[in-house]
Design a protein around this nucleic acid. Structure first.
Length: 422
DNA sequence: CTATAACTCTCAA
DNA sequence: CTAACGTTGAGAGTTATAG
């Protein structure tokens, strides 16, 4: 029997901000999404004030004024850097590690009997807290889904101990008692819709879900839910994925800092997004066979005329060349562009991805990609920062680029952003 | 008709 | 002053289309 741990940073983005600004400790803090749109991370204090995940910033301004909520733009460079430090520490605690997202990872143990898991979990917590400054919670169990749930219990302190929860030491009766108190929506893979449908059928808490008939669930819902229930019963269906497979599609999209009406700034945005997507594409050493572009107005602005459209085109042969990809994208954009609308967002998608290595024979025959140029661009930009070398089509001013008015400095990755006091 | 492609929906962080 | 609501990716299931 093997054991999994799920380790997760508490309110991760907020905790990252607090590492470098201890004055935020104890205060209500939110980190906002791109364009300072809505809450994507909340401190305990701000949750207590009733600020929900995804709540738009403008809707909490009253609350913010009254209670002195600190709102920060998201600073992904900073979070990514702290994440990688946290992950490398956690990686030492187990033979296997799957980095599941920026703020959480699974650990895989084989001969777990050697450890007292509670002590082990507290050790992880303490070390990460001391070395990186981020508070984490740890859940142990025999399947990934259960480990996720154990982590949830650790966060809520449902099993006594602060920050650590080990399901493997609970007996059947304790599990039942515990699971009866957890709503079904807390289970990994059960989102809003599914939770609603389950509740309609009287399956309101995790224990009820765990006891449901697998065949019925499969028929009425899906294979996915059937698997989830098996995992809740201790039957491990999901293994650890230590190496992330290459992406099957790469997308880059963003809302603009203000509405765009004309074709030209839209072209700049699409070119900029394509530059980002193409860079990711080359990093995983793939080429794209299909390019898609889409634009849309703001669906929330009901008083404005609405329009959204996407269009894709296959390439004559797969490419990873930013210049070529931008050309196709601009051509697609011209096709879908309609004057008279207030555009709020655009995006590009690279699809039908294939490994560059497996294409080399045809490359030799006829390869119009600017290979050397891309190599130089990537290397220069890696050292001097994204956008140091870029296409003129991307525009110089980028007056459409996103709002980030409340961003903290990149403390760990940019000398020039370090405040004097440090 | 089947096999596959294309699209839609759901979920997650 | 007003208006202001994220991004990226996967997978399953459904529908459309090709052969």
């Amino acid at each position: 029997m093997s054991v999994f741990a799920l380790v997760d940073g508490n309110n991760f983005y907020v905790s990252c901000e607090r590492v470098f600004n201890p004055k935020l400790e104890g205060r209500p803090v939110v980190v906002l999404s791109n364009n300072d749109g809505c809450a994507v991370a909340r401190s305990a204090e701000v949750k207590a004030l009733g600020v929900k995940m995804g709540m738009p910033w403008f809707k909490m301004q009253d609350l913010a004024r009254r209670h002195g909520i600190v709102a920060l733009s998201s600073n992904y460079e900073l979070y990514a850097d702290l994440s990688s430090r946290m992950m490398s520490i956690l990686g030492r605690y187990a033979p296997e590690q799957e980095i599941y997202s920026i703020d959480e990872c699974f650990l895989g143990f084989d001969g777990f009997q050697r450890y007292d898991l509670m002590t082990y979990g507290h050790d992880m917590r303490q070390t990460v807290r001391q070395w990186v400054g981020i508070p984490v919670c740890v859940g142990f169990a025999t399947t990934k889904t259960l480990a996720k749930l154990a982590n949830h219990c650790a966060k809520k302190g449902l099993t006594g101990a602060e920050g650590v929860c080990d399901f493997t030491r609970l007996n059947e009766q304790e599990i039942q008692e515990l699971f009866t108190r957890i709503p079904v929506g807390e289970v990994w893979g059960v989102g809003r819709k599914l939770a609603e449908r389950l509740e309609e059928r009287g399956i309101a808490h995790v224990d009820a879900l765990r006891r449901s008939d697998a065949k019925v669930l499969r028929r009425e819902f899906s294979v996915v839910l059937e698997r989830t229930v098996a995992e809740l019963n201790g039957v491990s269906c999901l293994g650890l994925d230590e190496i992330a497979p290459n992406k099957q599609q790469i997308m880059s999209s963003r809302s603009f800092g203000k509405y765009l009406h004309d074709l030209e700034p839209l072209e700049q945005a699409v070119a900029s997004y394509m530059a980002i997507a193409a860079e990711k594409l080359r990093r995983q050493q793939s080429k794209a066979g299909l390019v898609q572009v889409y634009v849309r107005t703001n669906p929330f602005a009901e008083h404005l005329p609405q329009y959204q459209q996407g269009l894709s085109a296959p390439l004559p042969e797969p490419s990873d060349d930013t210049l070529r990809l931008i050309k196709v994208a601009r051509w697609l954009l011209k096709k879908i562009y309609r004057p008279g609308y207030a555009y709020q967002k655009a995006g590009v998608v690279l699809m039908d991805l294939q490994e560059t290595a497996s294409l080399q024979r045809s490359l030799f025959a006829h390869n119009p990609d600017n290979e050397r140029l891309m190599e130089v661009m990537d290397r220069v930009n890696a050292v001097w920062g994204r956008g140091t070398l870029r296409c003129a089509t991307e525009g110089l001013q980028k007056e459409w680029s996103m709002k980030r008015e409340k961003k903290s400095p990149n403390f760990t990755t940019r000398w020039d952003e370090l405040p004097e006091a440090y």
